[in-house]
Design a protein around this nucleic acid. Structure first.
Length: 365
DNA sequence: AAACGTGCCAACCGCTATTCC
DNA sequence: AGGAATAGCGGTTGGCACGTT
């Protein structure tokens, strides 16, 4: 049984606010304040609106000192910096931009700024290494087979894996994997959305980590949320630093869990950078397998994707004394191709991760 | 000129967190 | 302590404006 609605939906007006409603609300709040009770406010103010709607209208449009119009470079910079640091916590970001609302910033990011930054990232050049060998796959977890998630494609110049389904995993997660989650929780949490593989297998999104919630910077997403005209999108993931002493082994990506030799299962390193475009021939997925900071293998799909970038330490994104510039952020994006290429299919090239390996994200279970 | 596509943004929805009783 | 009410948040949607075909 769900909660009772906050208002009588049938007798509540929805849609755009009229100037009369605006002035009623404004007048009432300026005279009486909100009284700390938005639910009761519309009735007192003589409005046929839901309290939530009134609150939103006030906060996003009517309250004093709201700034509308173009974002400045300084604001761009601040948004990028904060997004890199804390992800899509718009209310927190808005708190650092006087006069801007979270809604404003969110819209601005989704419609303009993200594209602006993505446009600065050149397509990386790389070739696909082999898919991780089967002995790396853990057997105790019902992850789907490789072919259910990826199909190997070949064109005149390269071969690459195409995700059988656009991975919306990064975006659809609604909770991060916490350090104390059990495996069964990961796999059986019914509250989490699932996606279906080409083979019809349902995969819980909880099999993936949500980097956005854990100080990862990502640009772009799956095709459904791409709004650019050509449907192109890509993403860059920033992780947080793994300490030298952290034991890490295995990885999870694309619905798989891999367990490199010699490491216990209770420490999982996951580093999946997945970029996609909706251009028919441009889908990219990139996964790096590492263990203890040493790169074991890498497989990379297609050429248009953007490999995960090495971010500055989180402290770099200080919200109060930020010295980063928009150029810094641009540079982070544009240099993202550098780490993504590895010429060695059997890949034991440790140089690859000289910087990137500082920024893995990981979890325990 | 009409139809269609795209970008934008205000507003809504559903969820979690917090407060209140 | 626990359930209900409310606040707050982030993702998504609807619809308008404008551009393109």
């Amino acid at each position: 049984m769900g909660r009772a609605p906050c208002c009588d939906k049938a007798n509540v007006k929805k849609g755009p606010w009229s100037p009369e409603e605006d002035s009623k609300l404004k007048e009432y709040i300026e005279k009486n304040g909100t009284g700390g009770n938005w639910i009761a406010l519309p009735q007192k103010a003589g409005l046929k609106r839901c309290g939530k709607s009134c609150r939103l209208r006030w906060l996003n449009y009517l309250r004093p000192n709201i700034k509308h119009g173009e974002f400045t470079d300084e604001e761009d910079r601040m948004i990028c910096t904060l997004f890199a640091s804390i992800g899509s916590r718009w209310s927190i970001i808005a708190a650092h931009l006087p006069g801007r609302t979270d809604n404003d910033i969110k819209n601005y990011w989704n419609t303009k700024l993200k594209k602006k930054l993505m446009a600065l990232a050149p397509p990386p050049q790389r070739k696909p290494p082999p898919f991780p060998s089967s002995h790396h796959q853990t057997t105790n977890l019902p992850f789907p087979s490789q072919s259910s998630l990826f199909s190997l494609n070949k064109d005149c110049t390269s071969s690459y894996y195409t995700p059988a389904k656009s991975f919306t995993c990064f975006d659809s997660f609604d909770q991060p994997i916490s350090s104390n989650l059990s495996t069964s929780h990961l796999l059986n949490n019914n509250n989490n959305t699932q996606f279906q593989t080409q083979e019809g297998q349902l995969v819980s999104s909880m099999q993936f980590y949500n980097p956005m919630k854990e100080n990862f910077l990502m640009f772009g997403s799956d095709q459904t949320s791409c709004s650019s005209s050509d449907g192109s999108c890509s993403q860059i993931s920033y992780g947080k630093e793994i300490k030298q002493e952290d034991q890490v082994g295995g990885f999870q990506g694309g619905g798989y869990n891999y367990s490199p030799n010699g490491f216990e299962e209770d420490h999982k390193l996951f580093m999946l950078n997945y970029g996609c475009t909706n251009n028919s021939n441009s889908t990219t997925a990139t996964t790096t397998i590492t263990t203890g900071g040493e790169n074991l293998n890498i497989w990379t799909e297609k050429t248009n994707g953007l490999f995960g970038e090495t971010p500055p330490p989180i402290s770099h994104y200080s919200t109060t004394t930020s010295t980063s510039t928009l150029e810094d952020v641009k540079q982070l994006i544009s240099s993202s191709s550098v780490h993504g290429y590895n010429d060695d299919n059997n890949n034991t090239n440790n140089n690859f991760l000289t910087d990137a390996n500082k920024y893995y994200f990981y979890y325990n279970y």
